[in-house]
């Protein structure tokens, strides 16, 4: 993920600067535990970005959601702002711009520029675009796309020459945050999502979050074991699909790390 994001950014002329000393956003464990902790952990990284005079680009839907939510809480509630200031040892106003990589690709780089940079095409590969829950919700906090039927990833896949399928589980939660602690629940959720993608005729699932990717990819092994449903649907992160079409070698995109083989996708691209 990290590797494919960096490679693709470089190819498209986006300069990514890693904030020195960045720390974890606390994720689901953070906000399930304490509201102030959940705002202060992302803020520790956000002030660093503010000092650098930059915007923050995130490629994980969960981190994106936590960063946005922290900004929202801090800017909207003086008490939270004061609590966070105390925890950080300095004031932070919640104003650093936080954006998901997908937004940057579509709005800043633009589909025209992406199209011009392409070397390969997905050649009509049937792709189910999966956004997951946290990128689009709650919409007044993230303000990202339509919360019920988003289309930004579909647009990217279409530019790459893929067929973006209409399907109903674009924003159903895969349960990534409970993957280890309630595997029983998560196997049910991922089974419903991957099963629906298969039913819609997908040859591959495209995701915009590394947590969703690991979960939807890896849990297919458990689904096969406990429910007997074998889907064999490769799950690729958006920069992996984009990278392939930009002509980047699969090893440089981390495709060898997938549990479900992406052979079908590689074949489609290679046939071009």
């Amino acid at each position: 993920m990290d590797q494919s994001t960096r490679t693709v950014a470089e190819k498209l002329g986006i300069q990514l600067i890693e904030p020195k000393g960045w720390t974890c956003c606390g994720a689901t464990a953070g906000h399930q535990t304490d509201r102030l902790l959940a705002a202060a952990l992302p803020a520790a990284t956000l002030v660093k970005v503010q000092d650098m005079g930059l915007e923050l680009v995130v490629n994980c839907a969960a981190c994106y959601n936590r960063m946005k939510a922290a900004n929202h809480e801090i800017a909207g509630d003086p008490q939270v702002r004061a609590g966070v200031a105390d925890a950080l040892g300095r004031d932070y106003d919640g104003s650093v711009e936080v954006r998901h990589l997908l937004e940057v690709l579509l709005n800043d780089v633009g589909t025209d520029a992406i199209e011009k940079a392409l070397h390969q095409s997905l050649r009509g590969l049937k792709v189910a675009c999966y956004y997951g829950c946290l990128l689009v919700r709650p919409s007044e906090v993230t303000g990202f796309d339509d919360p019920e039927n988003p289309s930004s990833l579909d647009r990217l896949v279409t530019v790459l020459g893929g067929t973006a399928l209409e399907w109903p589980h674009k924003t159903e939660c895969c349960g990534g945050g409970l993957s280890m602690s309630r595997t029983d629940v998560v196997v049910n959720l991922t089974d419903a999502i991957v099963g629906m993608a298969k039913l819609a005729g997908a040859e591959c699932i495209a995701v915009s979050c590394p947590m969703c990717q690991i979960n939807l990819d890896m849990r297919q092994l458990d689904i096969a074991k406990s429910k007997g449903n074998r889907y064999d649907l490769p799950v690729l992160y958006l920069t992996q699909l984009l990278g392939l079409c930009l002509g980047v070698a699969p090893q440089r995109l981390g495709l060898n790390k997938l549990m479900i083989s992406p052979a079908k996708v590689l074949q489609a691209v290679a046939a071009a």
Binding site: K20, G21, W22, T23, C24, D34, L36, L37, A40, L41, A44, K48, G83, D86, A87, L88, G89
Partner: peptide, 14 residues
């Protein structure tokens, strides 16, 4: 490479 000091302070304070 993480700013461990900042994070420890946050945990301590909260």
């Amino acid at each position: 490479g993480a700013d461990r000091q900042a994070v420890r302070r946050i945990f301590k304070k909260t």
